Amino acid sequence: MAKLIFLNLPVTDLARSIAFYRAIGAEQNHQFSDETGACMVLSDTIHLMLLTHPKYRQFTAKPIADTHVVSAALICLSEESRAAVDATVGWAGEAGGRADASPLQDHGWMYSRSFDDPDGHTFEIMWMDPAAAHAEAHAAA
């Protein structure tokens, strides 16, 4: 069985966050959602748990980072093509996120852009040609 990833994100407005992640292609799993949190499915193995601050505080005694001001993590997700990278970042900007929160990277064999969600969590969206990446690694060795 493949390992599953459940990324827990503190959010200030649960309804806004659900709408944002739906706009970039996630589906809500209502079985694991209630008024304090929502499970948003990005793929068969990647799930985002959007948690209100009171719910998030049940899992940690640490202060919740204001990710509009500090970087808590860079979350990188792959896409199937350069066009899919552009589409995802475009949807994020249209849905209330900040498109291209970090500089675009284009190495030919790897292409990435980023967005910040409405709570400031940074996502890098990337496409990579595995064959070209393999050749690049061997050429450098």
Results as ranks from 00 to 15, higher is better:
S81M: 05
S33L: 05
M49D: 00
P10S: 06
N8C: 07
V89I: 08
P63N: 11
E79T: 04
R113T: 04
L7T: 14
P54H: 01
A101L: 02
G97L: 10
V89W: 08
Q58K: 12
P118I: 07
V69L: 13
A135M: 10
L9E: 04
D100M: 14
P130N: 09
M1P: 10
S114P: 06
I5Y: 14
T52A: 07
S43M: 07
W91H: 14
P118W: 12
C76N: 08
E35A: 13
D13Y: 10
A72L: 14
A26R: 01
E80M: 09
M126A: 12
M128C: 12
E35N: 11
L7K: 06
N8A: 09
H30N: 13
D44Q: 09
D106P: 11
V70T: 14
D119I: 02
G120L: 06
A137C: 07
G90T: 13
Q58L: 04
A72G: 14
E124N: 15
A139L: 12
W91C: 05
A139V: 03
Q58H: 06
R57D: 08
A141W: 13
F20W: 01
L77W: 04
A26T: 00
A26H: 07
N29S: 08
F20K: 00
S81G: 09
V41H: 02
R98N: 10
L4R: 11
G96H: 10
I18E: 07
R16A: 12
D66M: 08
M110I: 12
Y21M: 01
R82T: 03
R57K: 14
H138R: 10
T88G: 02
G96N: 09
V41I: 13
F123A: 08
A137T: 07
E136Y: 10
Y56D: 05
S33A: 03
W127P: 03
T122Y: 08
N29E: 07
I24V: 09
E27M: 08
I64P: 05
I5S: 13
I24D: 04
Q105E: 15
L7F: 15
E124I: 13
E80A: 11
Y111F: 14
A133L: 08
M110V: 07
A19G: 05
Q58G: 05
G108P: 02
S102D: 08
A83E: 15
C76V: 09
A23R: 04
D117M: 05
S102Y: 14
A73V: 11
D66I: 03
A135D: 06
L48R: 05
R98G: 03
A73I: 11
I18R: 09
R22V: 01
F115H: 05
A139H: 15
P54Y: 03
W127C: 09
W127N: 10
A87G: 04
T36V: 02
M126D: 10
A95M: 08
H53E: 13
L50C: 01
Y111G: 05
L51H: 07
L14V: 05
L42E: 01
S102W: 15
S33M: 08
E136S: 06
E124T: 07
I18A: 00
E124Y: 10
G25V: 03
